[in-house]
Simulated scan of single mutants.
Amino acid sequence: MTAAPKQADKPDFPWWLLAACAIALFLAVQIVLNDLYSQIFSIVAKGVWITIFVTLVGFALATAIGLLLAVMGLSKSLALRQIARFYVEIVRGIPILVLLFYIAFVGAPGFVIAWNALTAPLAEAGLIGEMKVRDVSLLWRAIIALTIGYSAFISEVFRAGILAVDGGQVEAAKALGLSPVQRFRFIVLPQAIRTILPPLGNDFIAMIKDSSLVSVLGVADLTQMGKVYASGSFRFFETYSIVAYVYLLLTVGLSLGLRALEKRLRRADEARMGGSG
């Protein structure tokens, strides 16, 4: 006797999202009707653009470097593979906060010293001025630190996605006479994106949260604006409730958008496979 086919489980109703929307609506009403919450929100919101800027620029740079590291790690050159592995293993072992301090207070002064040494003849000729450490903004020190830290994790995401591509298709591309660059651009990367997208989206969401670490350098981001207001008004509950609320709007909204994109890509794949069948 054959067993009846098991029906596919239906996705659970997103009660968590309903509860989150209720909390978000409650806080939104408080911000509109309560003068204290309205004042806090107007001050804290000034740092939102810095948070978004740090996240977008840092993640874009980290993605570019991560892709380069992944390609180096999969190359035929032993030297390139070892350089990529050294970078990834060392950087992944350093906490982001420690890396932030190191880049800000060790890396930036070291860069200024090296720059002044290289451009000394131009400075003596009066063509350029001598660079000082304060000329390197704390904002860009923070962005560079996040870029370095996240590039190591993103490189592993790319490496796993590239390795997940069927080797037979790569061999078929070779048979068609495609160059290594063409094989990577037209065959490997488009297929790897479907595997890469979910963890890459998780890293982007994580960077939004980790961007709050730039506040330790005094960068006027969302967290720093909240910290300054709370320390002066002693309204810690109200202030950090608003800060958490804004971060949740950013992260949950992005998470839902990424899920919708994943479902759309999955349906497109299913439709293509059904059409080819």
Rank of each mutant, 00 (worst) to 15 (best):
L18K: 11
L100R: 06
N34F: 15
I50L: 06
V71F: 12
I96G: 03
V98P: 00
L18W: 15
F41G: 00
E89P: 01
V48H: 02
A20V: 13
V106F: 13
L67N: 02
E89Q: 08
K46D: 01
C21K: 06
V106K: 11
A70F: 09
G107T: 08
I65R: 05
L68Y: 15
Q39V: 12
L100G: 00
F53S: 00
G73C: 03
L78G: 01
I103Q: 04
F101H: 05
I23Q: 04
F86M: 05
E89M: 14
L97W: 12
F86D: 00
V48T: 14
D35H: 13
P95N: 10
V44P: 01
V57R: 08
A70W: 14
R92V: 14
G66I: 10
A62G: 03
F26L: 07
L78H: 12
Y87T: 02
I96S: 11
V106M: 11
M72F: 15
A84D: 01
V88D: 05
L61C: 11
Q30A: 13
F86W: 12
L25V: 08
A28E: 09
L56I: 14
I103K: 10
L68V: 15
G93C: 02
K76D: 13
G93I: 15
L68E: 10
I43K: 13
L36E: 08
K46I: 05
G110S: 02
K76L: 08
L80C: 04
G58M: 07
G58I: 11
S38T: 06
A28V: 14
R85G: 00
T51N: 03
G73Q: 05
S77R: 12
R85I: 15
I90W: 09
L68D: 07
V44M: 08
E89D: 15
A104R: 06
G66M: 05
I31K: 01
C21R: 11
L33P: 02
F41Q: 07
G107W: 15
L99R: 07
Q82G: 07
M72Y: 15
F26G: 00
R92G: 07
G47E: 04
Q30R: 14
A70V: 08
S75G: 00
I23F: 15
G73K: 05
A104N: 02
G93Q: 12
Y102H: 12
V44L: 10
A104V: 03
R85Q: 07
Q82I: 14
I50K: 06
W49M: 04
C21N: 05
L69Y: 11
I40S: 00
L100A: 11
A60P: 05
V29T: 06
I65Q: 12
K46F: 13
A108H: 03
L56H: 12
L27A: 01
I94M: 13
M72I: 13
Q82L: 04
S38F: 15
M72K: 10
K76S: 06
S38R: 08
Y102F: 14
R92I: 13
I43R: 10
F41A: 02
A22M: 10
L27Q: 07
V57P: 00
A70T: 08
L80M: 04
A84F: 11
Q30E: 09
L97G: 00
V57N: 01
R85P: 00
V88C: 05
L99V: 07
F111C: 01
R85H: 04
Y102W: 14
A84Y: 12
I31A: 07
F105S: 10
